[in-house]
């Protein structure tokens, strides 16, 4: 696995994470978090932990997002002005955070590379090997796939019930 792709993925993760914290709409924030999870899952897969990747995908990209959406939809909306005031405050507080994270990340990466640690070699030799991602995903965990489908349906209905109708009302 080549380093540039890994770094790219890590960068994407940082961007997604920052977006999740900074975005003013809670719903979009949740979706950003889901994006973060997807990137993380891909990273895990490339690093040789397909099962972990799969679970990450199921749990974080699927379930947690739906739960977040439900939770957000259940909470009442604050008045617009108050909300904006809050967000402004938060933005001021966390403005330095991405830069801080980025610097730390770069330093850590450089330190690893400088010490000659082979990132691809970290993977556990005892971990099971699967012929293909396809086999793992579509055959061995097909029940979870079904679960994902239903979870997405549930999320969709949650949005329908809790957002759409509220807008109508």
């Amino acid at each position: 696995m080549n380093l540039p792709i890994l770094l790219l993925l890590l960068g994407l993760m940082v961007v997604a994470a920052v977006a999740a914290v900074m975005i003013r709409s809670l719903l979009k924030s949740a979706i950003a978090l889901a994006a973060l999870s997807i990137v993380l899952a891909i990273t895990l897969f490339f690093l040789g932990a397909p099962l972990a990747a799969l679970f990450e995908l199921s749990v974080c990209a699927g379930l947690i997002t739906v739960i977040f959406i439900s939770a957000i939809s259940l909470t009442g909306n604050k008045p617009k002005e108050e909300e904006e005031e809050k967000i402004r405050e938060r933005r001021a507080r966390f403005l330095k955070l991405p830069i801080f994270l980025l610097i730390i990340g770069v330093f850590v990466s450089l330190a690893w590379i400088a010490n000659g640690i082979n990132i691809s070699g970290i993977s556990d030799p005892a971990a099971p090997t699967f012929q293909t991602f396809k086999n793992l995903f579509w055959n061995m965990r097909q029940v979870d796939i079904l679960g994902q489908v239903i979870v997405i349906l549930a999320g969709a209905f949650a949005v329908v019930v809790l957002f759409k109708e509220r807008d109508q009302a």
Binding site: F55, S58, L63, V66, I67, S70, L74, R141, V143, D144, G147, Q148, I150, V151, A154, G155, F157, A158, V161, L162, E165, R166, A169
Partner: peptide, 22 residues
């Protein structure tokens, strides 16, 4: 793990059902 997944589905569906009338 699949048990967990379906637990969550059941949970999510029932949250929304409880709040059906909002």
């Amino acid at each position: 793990f699949s048990l967990y997944v379906f637990l969550e589905i059941t949970g999510v569906a029932s949250f929304i059902l409880i709040a059906l009338y909002k």
